[in-house]
Design a protein around this nucleic acid. Structure first.
Lengths: 214, 214
DNA sequence: ACTAAGCTGTTACTTGCGGTAACTGGAGTG
DNA sequence: CACTCCAGTTACCGCAAGTAACAGCTTAGT
Protein backbone atom coordinates (compact mmCIF):
# COMPACT_ATOMS: atom_id res chain seq x y z
CA UNK A 1 0.00 0.00 0.00
CA UNK A 2 2.47 2.69 -1.12
CA UNK A 3 1.59 6.29 -1.74
CA UNK A 4 1.10 6.17 -5.52
CA UNK A 5 -1.26 3.26 -5.07
CA UNK A 6 -3.31 5.17 -2.57
CA UNK A 7 -3.32 8.24 -4.79
CA UNK A 8 -4.58 6.19 -7.69
CA UNK A 9 -7.41 4.89 -5.60
CA UNK A 10 -8.31 8.30 -4.37
CA UNK A 11 -8.23 9.69 -7.84
CA UNK A 12 -10.53 6.99 -9.03
CA UNK A 13 -12.88 7.52 -6.11
CA UNK A 14 -12.95 11.25 -6.75
CA UNK A 15 -13.73 10.77 -10.40
CA UNK A 16 -16.50 8.36 -9.50
CA UNK A 17 -17.83 10.85 -7.02
CA UNK A 18 -17.97 13.52 -9.67
CA UNK A 19 -19.79 11.19 -12.04
CA UNK A 20 -22.29 10.36 -9.37
CA UNK A 21 -22.82 14.02 -8.62
CA UNK A 22 -23.43 14.77 -12.27
CA UNK A 23 -25.96 11.98 -12.50
CA UNK A 24 -27.64 13.24 -9.35
CA UNK A 25 -27.70 16.69 -10.85
CA UNK A 26 -29.47 15.48 -13.96
CA UNK A 27 -32.07 13.62 -11.95
CA UNK A 28 -32.70 16.42 -9.49
CA UNK A 29 -33.05 18.92 -12.30
CA UNK A 30 -35.44 16.64 -14.12
CA UNK A 31 -37.52 15.17 -11.30
CA UNK A 32 -37.26 17.98 -8.79
CA UNK A 33 -35.73 17.68 -5.35
CA UNK A 34 -38.06 14.87 -4.39
CA UNK A 35 -35.91 12.59 -6.49
CA UNK A 36 -35.35 9.29 -4.74
CA UNK A 37 -32.00 7.75 -4.07
CA UNK A 38 -33.09 4.83 -6.18
CA UNK A 39 -33.74 7.08 -9.15
CA UNK A 40 -30.40 8.78 -8.78
CA UNK A 41 -28.61 5.48 -8.50
CA UNK A 42 -30.41 4.21 -11.58
CA UNK A 43 -29.43 7.29 -13.56
CA UNK A 44 -25.83 6.71 -12.55
CA UNK A 45 -26.18 3.11 -13.68
CA UNK A 46 -25.61 1.63 -10.25
CA UNK A 47 -27.57 0.90 -7.08
CA UNK A 48 -28.26 2.63 -3.82
CA UNK A 49 -25.64 1.35 -1.42
CA UNK A 50 -22.88 2.82 -3.55
CA UNK A 51 -24.37 6.26 -3.18
CA UNK A 52 -24.43 5.72 0.55
CA UNK A 53 -20.81 4.65 0.57
CA UNK A 54 -19.84 7.84 -1.17
CA UNK A 55 -22.08 10.37 0.52
CA UNK A 56 -23.13 8.81 3.79
CA UNK A 57 -26.77 9.71 3.52
CA UNK A 58 -29.13 11.71 1.39
CA UNK A 59 -28.20 14.85 3.25
CA UNK A 60 -24.59 14.32 2.32
CA UNK A 61 -25.43 13.95 -1.33
CA UNK A 62 -27.62 17.02 -1.36
CA UNK A 63 -25.04 19.01 0.54
CA UNK A 64 -22.38 18.07 -1.99
CA UNK A 65 -24.76 18.95 -4.81
CA UNK A 66 -25.67 22.26 -3.23
CA UNK A 67 -22.05 23.09 -2.58
CA UNK A 68 -21.18 22.81 -6.25
CA UNK A 69 -23.83 25.26 -7.36
CA UNK A 70 -23.28 27.52 -4.41
CA UNK A 71 -19.59 27.78 -5.06
CA UNK A 72 -20.21 28.60 -8.69
CA UNK A 73 -22.71 31.32 -7.80
CA UNK A 74 -20.49 32.84 -5.16
CA UNK A 75 -17.64 32.94 -7.62
CA UNK A 76 -19.72 34.96 -10.04
CA UNK A 77 -20.90 37.30 -7.31
CA UNK A 78 -17.38 37.90 -6.06
CA UNK A 79 -16.35 38.95 -9.52
CA UNK A 80 -19.13 41.52 -9.71
CA UNK A 81 -18.43 42.67 -6.18
CA UNK A 82 -14.74 43.19 -6.75
CA UNK A 83 -14.96 44.87 -10.12
CA UNK A 84 -13.26 48.26 -10.43
CA UNK A 85 -16.19 50.62 -10.57
CA UNK A 86 -18.01 52.98 -8.32
CA UNK A 87 -20.35 51.80 -5.63
CA UNK A 88 -23.73 52.12 -7.24
CA UNK A 89 -22.56 50.50 -10.39
CA UNK A 90 -21.15 47.56 -8.48
CA UNK A 91 -24.30 47.15 -6.46
CA UNK A 92 -26.33 47.04 -9.61
CA UNK A 93 -23.96 44.65 -11.29
CA UNK A 94 -24.00 42.33 -8.29
CA UNK A 95 -27.79 42.33 -8.16
CA UNK A 96 -27.90 41.72 -11.88
CA UNK A 97 -25.44 38.87 -11.66
CA UNK A 98 -27.53 37.15 -9.04
CA UNK A 99 -30.77 37.68 -10.90
CA UNK A 100 -29.26 36.59 -14.19
CA UNK A 101 -28.08 33.39 -12.53
CA UNK A 102 -31.46 32.47 -11.10
CA UNK A 103 -33.13 33.46 -14.34
CA UNK A 104 -30.82 31.36 -16.45
CA UNK A 105 -31.18 28.22 -14.35
CA UNK A 106 -34.39 28.36 -12.40
CA UNK A 107 -34.25 24.61 -11.84
CA UNK A 108 -31.00 24.93 -9.98
CA UNK A 109 -32.34 27.89 -8.11
CA UNK A 110 -35.46 26.03 -7.07
CA UNK A 111 -33.37 23.13 -5.93
CA UNK A 112 -31.20 25.33 -3.78
CA UNK A 113 -33.97 27.44 -2.32
CA UNK A 114 -37.40 25.85 -2.66
CA UNK A 115 -36.71 22.20 -2.90
CA UNK A 116 -40.20 20.80 -2.52
CA UNK A 117 -42.13 22.60 -5.20
CA UNK A 118 -41.10 20.23 -7.92
CA UNK A 119 -42.66 17.18 -6.31
CA UNK A 120 -46.06 15.71 -6.95
CA UNK A 121 -48.80 17.03 -4.73
CA UNK A 122 -49.03 14.76 -1.77
CA UNK A 123 -45.38 13.98 -1.99
CA UNK A 124 -43.66 14.25 1.35
CA UNK A 125 -40.51 15.83 0.02
CA UNK A 126 -37.06 15.87 1.45
CA UNK A 127 -36.35 19.06 3.25
CA UNK A 128 -33.49 20.87 1.66
CA UNK A 129 -33.99 23.93 3.82
CA UNK A 130 -30.94 22.73 5.65
CA UNK A 131 -28.91 23.37 2.51
CA UNK A 132 -30.55 26.50 1.21
CA UNK A 133 -29.99 28.46 4.39
CA UNK A 134 -26.22 28.08 4.18
CA UNK A 135 -26.25 29.56 0.71
CA UNK A 136 -27.86 32.75 1.90
CA UNK A 137 -25.72 32.83 5.03
CA UNK A 138 -22.56 32.52 3.03
CA UNK A 139 -23.63 35.24 0.64
CA UNK A 140 -24.53 37.45 3.57
CA UNK A 141 -21.19 36.94 5.26
CA UNK A 142 -19.26 37.59 2.09
CA UNK A 143 -21.16 40.74 1.37
CA UNK A 144 -20.61 41.85 4.94
CA UNK A 145 -16.89 41.44 4.51
CA UNK A 146 -16.85 43.49 1.35
CA UNK A 147 -18.89 46.25 2.96
CA UNK A 148 -16.78 46.32 6.09
CA UNK A 149 -13.68 46.40 3.95
CA UNK A 150 -14.60 49.19 1.61
CA UNK A 151 -17.25 51.37 3.11
CA UNK A 152 -16.54 53.80 5.90
CA UNK A 153 -19.30 53.33 8.43
CA UNK A 154 -17.77 54.87 11.51
CA UNK A 155 -17.95 53.20 14.94
CA UNK A 156 -19.60 49.81 15.18
CA UNK A 157 -18.94 49.33 11.52
CA UNK A 158 -18.31 45.63 11.69
CA UNK A 159 -21.63 44.77 13.21
CA UNK A 160 -23.45 47.19 11.00
CA UNK A 161 -21.81 45.65 7.96
CA UNK A 162 -22.96 42.19 8.93
CA UNK A 163 -26.53 43.31 9.50
CA UNK A 164 -26.51 44.99 6.15
CA UNK A 165 -24.84 42.07 4.43
CA UNK A 166 -27.53 39.66 5.52
CA UNK A 167 -30.27 42.19 5.03
CA UNK A 168 -29.29 43.08 1.50
CA UNK A 169 -28.88 39.46 0.53
CA UNK A 170 -32.31 38.74 1.93
CA UNK A 171 -33.78 41.64 0.01
CA UNK A 172 -32.20 40.42 -3.19
CA UNK A 173 -33.34 36.88 -2.57
CA UNK A 174 -36.93 37.65 -1.72
CA UNK A 175 -37.36 40.13 -4.53
CA UNK A 176 -35.72 37.72 -6.95
CA UNK A 177 -37.92 34.89 -5.85
CA UNK A 178 -41.07 36.92 -6.29
CA UNK A 179 -39.86 38.28 -9.62
CA UNK A 180 -39.00 34.85 -10.93
CA UNK A 181 -42.51 33.67 -10.12
CA UNK A 182 -44.47 36.60 -11.53
CA UNK A 183 -42.14 38.28 -13.97
CA UNK A 184 -43.79 41.62 -13.47
CA UNK A 185 -40.99 43.56 -15.11
CA UNK A 186 -37.65 43.26 -16.82
CA UNK A 187 -34.53 42.33 -14.96
CA UNK A 188 -33.03 45.74 -15.53
CA UNK A 189 -36.05 47.44 -14.02
CA UNK A 190 -35.91 45.20 -11.01
CA UNK A 191 -32.24 45.92 -10.50
CA UNK A 192 -32.88 49.62 -10.76
CA UNK A 193 -35.78 49.51 -8.32
CA UNK A 194 -33.80 47.63 -5.72
CA UNK A 195 -30.78 49.86 -6.09
CA UNK A 196 -33.07 52.86 -5.70
CA UNK A 197 -34.39 51.38 -2.49
CA UNK A 198 -30.88 50.89 -1.22
CA UNK A 199 -30.08 54.42 -2.26
CA UNK A 200 -32.56 55.88 0.11
CA UNK A 201 -35.38 56.69 -2.22
CA UNK A 202 -37.82 55.46 0.40
CA UNK A 203 -36.60 58.09 2.82
CA UNK A 204 -36.55 60.79 0.19
CA UNK A 205 -40.03 60.21 -1.17
CA UNK A 206 -42.84 62.50 -0.14
CA UNK A 207 -46.03 61.51 1.62
CA UNK A 208 -49.18 60.89 -0.29
CA UNK A 209 -52.10 63.08 0.54
CA UNK A 210 -53.87 62.07 3.75
CA UNK A 211 -51.52 61.94 6.69
CA UNK A 212 -48.03 60.68 7.35
CA UNK A 213 -46.88 58.04 4.87
CA UNK A 214 -45.18 54.76 5.55
CA UNK B 1 -81.58 17.46 6.90
CA UNK B 2 -82.81 20.99 7.70
CA UNK B 3 -80.60 24.01 8.12
CA UNK B 4 -80.27 24.04 11.88
CA UNK B 5 -79.22 20.42 11.78
CA UNK B 6 -76.57 21.10 9.25
CA UNK B 7 -75.37 24.11 11.16
CA UNK B 8 -75.05 22.06 14.31
CA UNK B 9 -72.97 19.51 12.51
CA UNK B 10 -70.80 22.15 10.99
CA UNK B 11 -70.32 23.82 14.32
CA UNK B 12 -69.28 20.56 15.86
CA UNK B 13 -66.92 19.79 13.02
CA UNK B 14 -65.38 23.23 13.28
CA UNK B 15 -64.82 22.87 16.98
CA UNK B 16 -63.26 19.48 16.45
CA UNK B 17 -61.05 20.95 13.78
CA UNK B 18 -59.84 23.62 16.14
CA UNK B 19 -59.08 21.05 18.81
CA UNK B 20 -57.12 18.99 16.34
CA UNK B 21 -55.18 22.03 15.24
CA UNK B 22 -54.31 22.85 18.80
CA UNK B 23 -53.09 19.34 19.42
CA UNK B 24 -51.07 19.47 16.23
CA UNK B 25 -49.62 22.75 17.37
CA UNK B 26 -48.45 21.27 20.64
CA UNK B 27 -46.82 18.32 18.93
CA UNK B 28 -45.15 20.35 16.23
CA UNK B 29 -43.81 22.79 18.76
CA UNK B 30 -42.51 19.98 20.92
CA UNK B 31 -41.21 17.50 18.35
CA UNK B 32 -40.34 19.87 15.55
CA UNK B 33 -41.90 19.81 12.11
CA UNK B 34 -40.87 16.21 11.52
CA UNK B 35 -43.76 15.21 13.76
CA UNK B 36 -45.61 12.25 12.34
CA UNK B 37 -49.31 12.14 11.71
CA UNK B 38 -49.50 9.27 14.17
CA UNK B 39 -47.95 11.39 16.89
CA UNK B 40 -50.32 14.25 16.20
CA UNK B 41 -53.30 11.95 16.22
CA UNK B 42 -52.15 10.40 19.48
CA UNK B 43 -51.78 13.84 21.06
CA UNK B 44 -55.31 14.64 20.01
CA UNK B 45 -56.46 11.33 21.51
CA UNK B 46 -57.58 9.88 18.20
CA UNK B 47 -56.10 8.06 15.22
CA UNK B 48 -54.78 8.99 11.83
CA UNK B 49 -57.73 8.58 9.47
CA UNK B 50 -59.63 11.28 11.33
CA UNK B 51 -56.88 13.75 10.65
CA UNK B 52 -57.05 12.81 7.02
CA UNK B 53 -60.79 13.27 6.96
CA UNK B 54 -60.42 16.76 8.34
CA UNK B 55 -57.37 18.00 6.48
CA UNK B 56 -57.04 15.82 3.42
CA UNK B 57 -53.34 15.22 3.72
CA UNK B 58 -50.37 16.32 5.75
CA UNK B 59 -49.95 19.34 3.55
CA UNK B 60 -53.46 20.42 4.39
CA UNK B 61 -52.85 20.13 8.08
CA UNK B 62 -49.62 22.07 7.89
CA UNK B 63 -51.22 24.70 5.72
CA UNK B 64 -54.00 25.17 8.24
CA UNK B 65 -51.47 25.33 11.04
CA UNK B 66 -49.34 27.83 9.18
CA UNK B 67 -52.36 29.95 8.34
CA UNK B 68 -53.21 30.41 12.01
CA UNK B 69 -49.79 31.71 12.93
CA UNK B 70 -49.46 33.69 9.77
CA UNK B 71 -52.74 35.45 10.31
CA UNK B 72 -51.78 36.33 13.84
CA UNK B 73 -48.45 37.74 12.74
CA UNK B 74 -49.97 39.72 9.92
CA UNK B 75 -52.47 41.18 12.30
CA UNK B 76 -49.73 42.48 14.55
CA UNK B 77 -47.80 43.86 11.61
CA UNK B 78 -50.81 45.66 10.23
CA UNK B 79 -51.28 47.38 13.54
CA UNK B 80 -47.72 48.66 13.52
CA UNK B 81 -47.97 49.62 9.88
CA UNK B 82 -51.16 51.59 10.33
CA UNK B 83 -50.22 53.41 13.51
CA UNK B 84 -50.46 57.20 13.37
CA UNK B 85 -46.82 58.23 13.35
CA UNK B 86 -44.27 59.42 10.88
CA UNK B 87 -42.67 57.13 8.41
CA UNK B 88 -39.38 56.30 10.04
CA UNK B 89 -41.04 55.58 13.33
CA UNK B 90 -43.51 53.25 11.72
CA UNK B 91 -40.83 51.43 9.81
CA UNK B 92 -38.94 50.87 13.02
CA UNK B 93 -42.01 49.79 14.88
CA UNK B 94 -42.94 47.34 12.15
CA UNK B 95 -39.46 45.86 12.10
CA UNK B 96 -39.51 45.63 15.85
CA UNK B 97 -42.91 43.95 15.88
CA UNK B 98 -41.71 41.30 13.51
CA UNK B 99 -38.48 40.70 15.37
CA UNK B 100 -40.22 40.64 18.72
CA UNK B 101 -42.60 38.01 17.39
CA UNK B 102 -39.89 35.70 16.13
CA UNK B 103 -37.90 36.29 19.29
CA UNK B 104 -40.82 35.49 21.55
CA UNK B 105 -41.76 32.26 19.80
CA UNK B 106 -38.77 30.91 17.93
CA UNK B 107 -40.40 27.49 17.76
CA UNK B 108 -43.30 28.86 15.80
CA UNK B 109 -40.93 30.83 13.65
CA UNK B 110 -38.80 27.79 12.90
CA UNK B 111 -41.90 25.84 12.02
CA UNK B 112 -43.04 28.47 9.59
CA UNK B 113 -39.69 29.15 8.01
CA UNK B 114 -37.14 26.42 8.62
CA UNK B 115 -39.21 23.38 9.29
CA UNK B 116 -36.57 20.69 9.13
CA UNK B 117 -34.01 21.91 11.62
CA UNK B 118 -35.84 20.48 14.57
CA UNK B 119 -35.59 16.90 13.38
CA UNK B 120 -32.98 14.33 14.22
CA UNK B 121 -30.01 14.28 11.91
CA UNK B 122 -30.73 11.80 9.19
CA UNK B 123 -34.40 12.47 9.45
CA UNK B 124 -35.96 13.05 6.08
CA UNK B 125 -38.29 15.79 7.18
CA UNK B 126 -41.45 17.00 5.60
CA UNK B 127 -40.87 20.00 3.46
CA UNK B 128 -42.77 22.94 4.74
CA UNK B 129 -41.11 25.30 2.32
CA UNK B 130 -44.41 25.25 0.51
CA UNK B 131 -46.01 26.96 3.49
CA UNK B 132 -43.26 29.34 4.52
CA UNK B 133 -43.06 30.97 1.13
CA UNK B 134 -46.68 32.13 1.24
CA UNK B 135 -46.03 33.84 4.55
CA UNK B 136 -43.33 36.00 3.08
CA UNK B 137 -45.32 36.57 -0.06
CA UNK B 138 -48.33 37.74 1.87
CA UNK B 139 -46.26 40.07 3.98
CA UNK B 140 -44.61 41.42 0.86
CA UNK B 141 -47.91 42.08 -0.83
CA UNK B 142 -49.38 43.77 2.22
CA UNK B 143 -46.39 45.99 2.63
CA UNK B 144 -46.52 46.84 -1.05
CA UNK B 145 -50.10 47.96 -0.65
CA UNK B 146 -49.27 50.20 2.26
CA UNK B 147 -46.34 51.73 0.42
CA UNK B 148 -48.32 52.30 -2.74
CA UNK B 149 -51.09 53.80 -0.68
CA UNK B 150 -49.12 56.24 1.38
CA UNK B 151 -45.85 57.06 -0.29
CA UNK B 152 -45.61 59.25 -3.31
CA UNK B 153 -43.31 57.48 -5.74
CA UNK B 154 -44.18 59.18 -8.98
CA UNK B 155 -44.73 57.21 -12.22
CA UNK B 156 -44.56 53.45 -12.07
CA UNK B 157 -45.29 53.65 -8.41
CA UNK B 158 -47.32 50.49 -8.21
CA UNK B 159 -44.65 48.25 -9.56
CA UNK B 160 -41.97 49.98 -7.57
CA UNK B 161 -44.00 49.52 -4.42
CA UNK B 162 -44.32 45.81 -5.00
CA UNK B 163 -40.62 45.35 -5.60
CA UNK B 164 -39.91 47.28 -2.45
CA UNK B 165 -42.52 45.43 -0.47
CA UNK B 166 -41.05 42.06 -1.24
CA UNK B 167 -37.51 43.33 -0.97
CA UNK B 168 -38.00 44.92 2.43
CA UNK B 169 -39.77 41.87 3.77
CA UNK B 170 -36.91 39.72 2.53
CA UNK B 171 -34.40 42.00 4.17
CA UNK B 172 -36.27 41.84 7.44
CA UNK B 173 -36.62 38.10 7.22
CA UNK B 174 -33.02 37.31 6.37
CA UNK B 175 -31.60 39.69 8.91
CA UNK B 176 -33.98 38.39 11.54
CA UNK B 177 -33.09 34.82 10.79
CA UNK B 178 -29.42 35.50 11.08
CA UNK B 179 -29.89 37.55 14.21
CA UNK B 180 -32.02 34.90 15.86
CA UNK B 181 -29.28 32.37 15.28
CA UNK B 182 -26.30 34.40 16.40
CA UNK B 183 -27.73 37.11 18.61
CA UNK B 184 -24.91 39.48 17.77
CA UNK B 185 -26.67 42.51 19.16
CA UNK B 186 -29.82 43.74 20.84
CA UNK B 187 -33.11 43.91 19.01
CA UNK B 188 -33.13 47.66 19.17
CA UNK B 189 -29.72 47.88 17.55
CA UNK B 190 -30.80 45.57 14.79
CA UNK B 191 -33.90 47.63 14.13
CA UNK B 192 -31.85 50.77 14.02
CA UNK B 193 -29.28 49.27 11.67
CA UNK B 194 -31.91 48.06 9.25
CA UNK B 195 -33.80 51.32 9.30
CA UNK B 196 -30.54 53.11 8.65
CA UNK B 197 -29.96 50.91 5.66
CA UNK B 198 -33.42 51.71 4.36
CA UNK B 199 -32.75 55.37 5.00
CA UNK B 200 -29.93 55.45 2.53
CA UNK B 201 -26.98 55.34 4.83
CA UNK B 202 -25.27 53.00 2.41
CA UNK B 203 -25.43 55.59 -0.31
CA UNK B 204 -24.36 58.37 2.01
CA UNK B 205 -21.35 56.64 3.54
CA UNK B 206 -17.90 57.53 2.32
CA UNK B 207 -15.39 55.18 0.75
CA UNK B 208 -12.69 53.60 2.81
CA UNK B 209 -9.14 54.41 1.80
CA UNK B 210 -7.94 52.49 -1.25
CA UNK B 211 -10.26 52.94 -4.17
CA UNK B 212 -13.97 53.01 -4.78
CA UNK B 213 -16.00 51.29 -2.09
CA UNK B 214 -18.87 48.91 -2.45
C1' DA C 1 -90.41 0.80 17.30
C1' DC C 2 -87.46 -0.41 13.19
C1' DT C 3 -84.68 0.81 9.45
C1' DA C 4 -81.62 3.80 6.79
C1' DA C 5 -78.36 7.46 6.70
C1' DG C 6 -74.56 9.71 8.16
C1' DC C 7 -71.40 10.78 11.49
C1' DT C 8 -67.00 9.55 14.34
C1' DG C 9 -63.95 6.37 15.28
C1' DT C 10 -61.26 2.03 14.85
C1' DT C 11 -57.90 -1.76 13.01
C1' DA C 12 -55.22 -3.38 9.58
C1' DC C 13 -53.28 -2.82 5.35
C1' DT C 14 -50.48 -1.04 1.09
C1' DT C 15 -46.91 1.61 -0.89
C1' DG C 16 -42.77 3.82 -1.11
C1' DC C 17 -38.59 5.72 0.67
C1' DG C 18 -34.25 6.04 3.48
C1' DG C 19 -30.94 3.21 5.14
C1' DT C 20 -28.27 -1.27 6.08
C1' DA C 21 -26.50 -6.17 6.36
C1' DA C 22 -24.60 -9.65 4.06
C1' DC C 23 -23.20 -11.77 0.13
C1' DT C 24 -20.61 -11.96 -4.81
C1' DG C 25 -17.15 -11.42 -8.24
C1' DG C 26 -13.01 -9.62 -10.01
C1' DA C 27 -8.28 -7.34 -9.71
C1' DG C 28 -3.94 -6.92 -7.70
C1' DT C 29 -0.26 -9.01 -4.45
C1' DG C 30 2.59 -12.36 -1.39
C1' DC D 1 -2.81 -20.52 -5.10
C1' DA D 2 -4.57 -18.05 -1.16
C1' DC D 3 -5.52 -13.40 0.68
C1' DT D 4 -7.21 -9.15 0.79
C1' DC D 5 -9.56 -5.15 -1.06
C1' DC D 6 -13.28 -2.97 -3.08
C1' DA D 7 -17.11 -2.07 -6.43
C1' DG D 8 -21.23 -3.89 -6.82
C1' DT D 9 -25.43 -6.62 -5.92
C1' DT D 10 -29.82 -8.57 -3.65
C1' DA D 11 -32.72 -8.68 -0.06
C1' DC D 12 -34.10 -6.89 3.84
C1' DC D 13 -35.69 -3.53 8.06
C1' DG D 14 -38.12 0.40 9.91
C1' DC D 15 -41.03 4.00 9.43
C1' DA D 16 -44.23 7.33 7.79
C1' DA D 17 -47.98 8.73 4.48
C1' DG D 18 -52.12 7.46 3.05
C1' DT D 19 -56.41 4.18 2.46
C1' DA D 20 -59.99 0.50 2.74
C1' DA D 21 -63.14 -1.70 5.32
C1' DC D 22 -65.47 -2.29 9.19
C1' DA D 23 -67.92 -0.91 14.03
C1' DG D 24 -70.80 1.95 16.91
C1' DC D 25 -73.73 6.11 17.86
C1' DT D 26 -76.99 9.54 16.94
C1' DT D 27 -80.74 11.20 14.28
C1' DA D 28 -84.55 11.23 10.55
C1' DG D 29 -88.27 9.04 8.20
C1' DT D 30 -92.14 5.92 7.96
Amino acid sequence: MDTTQRTDQQRSADRRRRELLEAADRVVLRDGPGASMNAIAAEAGITKPILYRHFGDKGGLYAALAKRHTDALLEALRAALDAPAERRERVESTLDTYLAAIEARPQVYRFLMHPAEGGQPGDAGFDVGKYSAPVLRRMGEELAEVIEERVDLGPGSQQLARVWGHGIVGMMHAAGDWWLGERPCSRAELVRSLADLLWGRLAAAGDRVGGPGF
